[in-house]
């Protein structure tokens, strides 16, 4: 298990190792690590910094800034409910509550058996068809509470 993890981390880092004269790209690297491992383990921060030739602080700054970057392993599926102005005006909060009721977990929490993690986000940029829910990489617009059960059925 640990070996596989190590390999994935090493692969992710190797793909982002800066080649002069290119400058290190911290954000791209963290996204690659997250793609490989599902999250960015904070304990690997020194190794990430070393490969990029930057400091721990520089990586920590980026990692703590972007909400897309996770430092804890999430469940198999990540549900993000938009709480931007347009979604809020179109009853996004009701959708969030319906999701919470359906999976029985509060914002920030994970369901038993680690099927779902629920998070809220600020604007997803999908305002024209708000309210918006994003599950993993898929985006759903004009979501109404009654659709929630069917929508989540697809994710095992």
């Amino acid at each position: 298990m640990r070996t596989q993890y190590g390999t994935r981390l090493a692969e992710a880092l190797e793909s982002c190792r800066p080649v002069p004269p290119d400058k290190p790209n911290i954000l791209k690297t963290l996204l690659a690590v997250q793609a490989g491992l599902g999250y960015v383990p904070t304990s690997d921060l020194p190794q990430i910094a070393q490969v990029l030739g930057v400091t721990d602080a520089q990586v920590a700054g980026v990692l703590s800034y972007y909400s897309d970057l996770r430092t804890q392993p999430s469940s198999r599926h990540l549900i993000r409910v938009c709480r931007g102005e347009s979604c809020t005006a179109n009853h996004g909060l009701r959708v969030l509550l319906a999701i919470q009721d359906h999976v029985c977990v509060a914002v920030g929490g994970s369901t038993q058996a680690e099927r779902f993690t629920v998070e809220q986000m600020s604007c997803a940029g999908n305002c024209a068809v708000s309210p918006t829910v994003i599950v993993d990489d898929e985006m759903y617009g004009r979501v109404v509470p009654s659709q929630v059960a069917a929508l989540l059925e697809r994710y095992e």
Partner: peptide, 9 residues
């Protein structure tokens, strides 16, 4: 502001 990466842990 914080020093290093320690605040994450």
């Amino acid at each position: 502001p914080t020093a290093g990466g320690g605040s994450l842990i």
